[in-house]
Design a protein around this nucleic acid. Structure first.
Lengths: 135, 135
DNA sequence: CAAATATTTAGAATTAGTCTAAATCTATAA
DNA sequence: TTATAGATTTAGACTAATTCTAAATATTTG
C-alpha cells in the first residue's frame, strides 16, 4: 500500500491533474469524483472518468487535496488539507468542516487506548444541520 | 428517514434476522454484509443476499447492531452498540474499537462550532496497528 | 530522432447495495 | 380451519462508485 516515488515524471502536475485540482480549489463544498468529472470536462472536454480517479489519487498522495469517505456512497474531496473535523446531517447528508482543537489534543490518549501508533485523529459529529432544523 | 413502527409483525426477529444477528454477535471483528451472508448461509442455506441487507437494516434500526461506514469499501457491522471510537490501520485496514470518554465530552463544543444540533460524536484514529508495527 | 516510460483514454469488469416481482409465511377473523 | 391481508423472503436484475485493461498519446532522455 505504501509506495516510494522514484521516477522523474511521477510527480508531474499534468494538464488533467491540474484541471481536477482547480475544480476542487474553486469550490466551497465537497464534490464527489463524478461532480469533479462533470466540472473538469467543461475545461478539458476529453478528460476521462479513469483519469479523474487517477488524478484524485495522485493529488491525495501529494497532499494537495483531502479525501473524505463516509459510506453514504461516493468519496468526497476537500481543498482543505489541514487537520479538521466534520459534521454530517442525518437528514440531508450535508457535510460541513469545522476545527475543534480539543479533538486534536486527544491523539495521545487515543493512541494509548487503541495501542496504535497514531498518525491522525478526527472527530465526526452527527446531527441536524441548521437548514434542516428550520424545516 | 425516521419511521415509527406501528404494525404487529414489523418488529419480529425472524429466523433470517436472528441468524444474521447471531453471526454478528459471535464475532469479535467487524464483518461486512458479504461476510455475514457467507456465514449465515452455513446455518440457513437458502438465505438470500437481499435478506441479509434487509436484516441488517432492521437490526440497525432496532439498535441491535451498529453499522460502521468508512469508505474503503463495504459497511461493517459491530455487535457493540454503545458509543465508542475507532482506530483504523493505514497499513492493513484493521478496525479496532475503543472508548475515549473525553471524545464524548466534546459533543457540546462540536455542536457549537458546527452549528448542528448534535446527535452523537465519534472519534477516529488513523495510524499503525500493533501487528503492522512489528512487521 | 528513437526508445523507454508515463499518462490518458474508452470501455469492460468488479463490488456494494438496492429494487422488483413472484413466492412463501404468519396472524387473524369469519 | 380457511380465507385473506400484510409482512417477509427469494432470485435475479439493476445501479452507482470505482478499478482494471489494453491501446493510443505524450513526454523525457540518450
Amino acid at each position: 500500500m505504501a509506495q516510494l516515488k522514484e521516477n522523474k515524471t511521477e510527480d508531474k502536475l499534468t494538464r488533467q491533474r491540474d484541471a481536477v485540482l482547480q475544480v476542487i480549489r474553486s469550490r466551497e463544498d465537497h464534490p464527489t469524483a463524478n461532480e469533479i468529472f462533470q466540472a473538469a470536462r467543461e475545461h478539458l472536454p476529453t478528460i476521462s472518468h479513469a483519469t479523474v480517479y487517477n488524478s484524485l489519487r495522485f493529488l491525495r498522495e501529494a497532499g494537495l487535496v483531502h479525501e473524505i469517505k463516509f459510506g453514504d456512497g461516493a468519496s468526497r474531496y476537500d481543498r482543505e488539507t489541514d487537520r479538521h473535523d466534520h459534521a454530517i446531517c442525518n437528514e440531508c447528508g450535508k457535510l460541513v468542516d469545522f476545527d475543534l482543537p480539543q479533538a486534536a489534543d486527544l491523539i495521545q490518549a487515543a493512541a494509548r487506548k487503541s495501542k496504535f501508533q497514531a498518525a491522525s485523529v478526527h472527530l465526526t459529529l452527527r446531527g441536524i444541520c441548521p437548514d434542516c432544523r428550520k424545516a
